[in-house]
């Protein structure tokens, strides 16, 4: 589904990603862990096409489509979804208006019929119930005055509505209490299917206890330095990241390719 090869990317002339490789097959859940500043969030921004992130080398394809050539909205329409670490507030634009515009655009790109306002509203209400957002939230400004937990749940709600192929969750667990964390995890688990994949970017193992990943990768200094299964997350939790530095980078890369 997703194929990233030798990806080099920088922001403000600073190299962040330095030859990242990653292969994801349909239905897989990959967790990406790693120390602060390793480039975890950058990966999400580069894949989804945020301004200011430039790719120097390498490729990223989603089902054979070259993502890097597309505008941000075209990538979204191609099935890529990023759940933001810091969801953006847009005062004055209501959630309903925002969600409708978004769903309409994505459905149109897929060749699906536009939903009537009534059908859309019904769908939006059901989805908001699923993520425990109060009914009146649809009328409020996008993320305006939302608590941290509400914002994260709103991200999951958007994921439910847009039905993407590949979801990137960028530290969706940060700043959440245990209840909110469960809502996020349940939202993700309910969407797991053989044709949908996930990248779960996280600092802690906590979220991974709820969303069991198929693979765990460690991202450090712009590269995947170690890959393994779910047990690697436990190892990292107990030992931190320091021990990885002693490993020769070549070996780590080889492992990565072998396992990926």
């Amino acid at each position: 589904m997703l194929s990233i090869k030798n990806l080099h990317a920088s922001v403000e002339e600073k190299n962040i990603l330095k030859g990242l490789e990653l292969e994801i097959k349909p239905g897989e859940v990959h967790a990406i862990m790693g120390p602060n500043g390793a480039g975890k969030s950058t990966l999400g921004y580069v894949l989804t096409g945020r301004d200011g992130y430039s790719v120097e080398q390498g490729s990223a394809e989603l089902d054979g489509v070259d993502l890097l050539e597309l505008e941000a909205e075209e990538r979204a329409r191609a099935g890529l979804f990023l759940a933001f670490q810091y969801p953006v507030e847009i005062p004055g634009v209501s959630n309903l208006e925002f969600l409708k515009a978004s769903v309409d655009a994505v459905r149109e790109a897929r060749g699906e019929e536009a939903l009537s306002s009534k059908d859309f509203l019904k769908m939006a209400r059901e989805a908001s119930k699923q993520v425990n957002l109060p009914a009146d939230f649809l009328k409020r400004g996008v993320n305006e005055g939302f608590s941290g937990g509400e914002k994260k749940r709103n991200e999951i709600l958007q994921m439910l509505l847009l039905k993407p192929k590949l979801c990137i969750l960028d530290e969706s667990d940060s700043g959440l209490d245990i209840d909110a964390l469960q809502v996020v995890a349940e939202g993700v688990n309910s969407q797991r299917s053989p044709d949908r994949s996930f990248i779960v970017v996280t600092h802690y193992q906590r979220l991974l206890d709820y969303i069991k990943p198929d693979f765990v990768h460690v991202l450090a200094d712009g590269k995947i330095v170690k890959s393994g299964d779910y047990s690697l997350a436990h190892e990292l939790e107990s030992q931190g990241y320091a021990w990885l530095k002693d490993q020769p980078a070549d070996e780590a890369a080889t492992n990565d390719v072998a396992e990926g």
Partner: peptide, 15 residues
């Protein structure tokens, strides 16, 4: 707001 613009684009809305 460039960030808000990107947020909307990342949800499939044209620029």
């Amino acid at each position: 707001d460039k960030t808000a613009l990107y947020y909307l684009q990342s949800r499939g809305v044209s620029r």
